[in-house]
Design a protein around this nucleic acid. Sequence first.
RNA 1: GGCGCUAUCGUCUAGGGGUUAGGACGGAAGAUUCUCAAUCUUCAAACACGGGUUCGAUUCCCGUUAGCGCUACCA
Length: 515
Amino acid sequence: MTDPLLSPSPTPRVRFAPSPTGFLHVGSARTFIFNWLYARHNGGAVILRLDDTDVERNSQASVDSIFDGLKWLNLGWDEEYKQSERIDLHRRTAGKIFEKGLAYRDFTPAHTGDSEKSGAQGTWLFNPGARELSAAESDRRAAAGEPFALRFRVPREPGQLVRFSDAVYGEQVKAAADVEDFALLRSDGMPTYHLASCADDADLRISHIIRGQDHLSNTFKHVLIFEAAGFRPPQFAHLPLLVAPDGTKLSKRRHGPVVSVTTYRDAGFLSEAFINFLCLLGWSPKNDRENMSLQELTGAFSLEGINRSNAVVNFKESPVVPDEVDSDVVIPSEATDPGAAYAEETFDPKALWLNAEHIRGLPVEDLSARLLPIVHAAGFSVDAAKMVRITPLIRERIKLLRDVLTAADLFFVDQLPSYDPAELIPQKGDMAMALKVLTRAREVLAGTQFKHDPLDQALRAAAQELGVKAGQMFQPIRVAVCGRKNAPPLFETLEVLGKETVLQRIEQATRLKIT
RNA sequence: GGCGCUAUCGUCUAGGGGUUAGGACGGAAGAUUCUCAAUCUUCAAACACGGGUUCGAUUCCCGUUAGCGCUACCA
C-alpha cells in the first residue's frame, strides 16, 4: 500500500466542492469565486470536485444546474474530479485510521427513531457500548456479516484539545470531549462527507480550504481525520455566510429563485457584475473601491480582507411558486421557473447598480453583441448593424440586459403599441398645440437631413416660428415617434429610426387625434 | 440543551484608546439636459446593552442580549 502524500502542496491548490443536491445558489457561487480569486492571485490551481457521496439526494439535474451556473460565471477551473469515483481511496483512508485503532465499528442500527426533533436533546457523544466493544467481538460480528458504521474514536482524555488556525477566524481551540464520535463509513460501506472530503483534500494536495463558515465547527473533526490518517492539515479559511434579509440562510423554498445563480443570468445580469457584487459581500478591498473588473478583483483579493460576520443579500422576498416539495433538493425546472418574469425590484439594489455600472463600462460593440440574442429571443428581428446604432441610446437607461426590450422596443416594431393621445399634449399646452406642432414637424422633417445637427436646428427653428418652447415642440414628436414620454434622446432616435418611419408615425399620431 | 462564531447608518462596508465615525447602494432635495436616464451638489441615516481597564472607550476585557452555525450512518 502506497503511502499518500503527507503534506499539502507548497503552491496554492484550492478546491470548490459542491454537492449536487440542489441548484447552484449565490452562496456557493461566492465560495467558488473566492477560491478562484485566491488561486489566481497567488498563481495556484483551482480544483472542481463534485462531492457526490450522498446517493440518496444527488441528482443529475443538480449537476447540470451547477455546471450551468459555473459556465455562466465564466471563470473556469484547472482540474475536475468526482468523489464517487474515488471511493476506494476513501475506504483505504478509513482502513488506515481503523488499523491505528483510531476508529471502531458501531453495530447500532442507524436512526434509533427517537424523537430527536423534540429539540431538548442532550449531548450525544457516542452510542453506548459500541466504543468499548472488544476487538475480538467486533471482528467476529463483522465477519458474521453484521452491518456497522465506522466511527472515529475521538480522544476522551480530559484536557485533550483540538486546534487549528483559520485565516479568517483566527486560532480555534476546542476540547476533544465536546466532539462526538462521528461516522467515517456508513453501514452500507459508503464514506461520509467528512471522511471523503478529508481523504480527497489530502490526496489532491489541497493547500487551502476556503469554504462557508457553516463548516467551522466541522473543522475540528477534519483536523482529527487529517492527523489520524497521517496528513498535515491544509490552511483553513472560513467565509462568513450569505443570508437572506430575514437573517436566515438562503433557501429556494423560503426565498424563491432569487437565490439561484441562473436567475441572475436569466434576468440579464452581466456575469462580471454579478461576480463583483458577490465579492463585496464579506470581503472588502479596504480602499472604497466598488466597481471593479475581474482583473482588479484578482489583484486586490486577499484572505485578510475577509470579514467575520454574515452578510445580507438584500433582495425583496418574493412570493414563491407554491410547489410543496423541498425545493432545496429539487431543481427548479425551467418550466416552473419562468425566470424572465422577475421584477428588478426583487434584486439587491447594489447588484442592480453594479450591473448598470458594468453595462455602461462595456464597449458599445460588446454590449450590443450581448443585447442582440435577447432581442432575437423575444421575437424581434434586428440586424447587428442596427443594434450597434441603438445601443448607445439606451445603455445609460438600462440596469439589466433584458431591459433592452422595454427601453428599445420602439426601434424593433413596425407598429407602435397604442397609447393615450393625451400623452401628446406638451407641458402647459393643449391638444391644439400638439396638433399644430406635429403638423409643422411633419412638413419640416420631410425636408430635413436625418442627422443630429440638422434635426436639432430645424426643429428648434420650427418651435420658434410656432411660438412654442423647444420642450413643447419636442414632446409631441417624441410621443408620436416613441409611443411614450420617457425615451432616448430625440434627435438620435429620429436619426436611427429614419425619415420614413418617423414621418409615418407622426402622420399616424395626427390622425389618431382627429378621430 | 451542549459547543462554537458574530455584533458600526435600512443594506454592503472603512476605521480604530482622543475622529466632524469615512465611503457606497438605497432614500430625500437641488443643479443640468428636449423627456427619462446618466452626471454633479447637498441632506437624513450607525458604533446592541451593562459592567470594568483607562485621564479618556465605539475601539481592549468580562458579562447580557440577539442572530447565525454545528450538534445525522446530509453535505
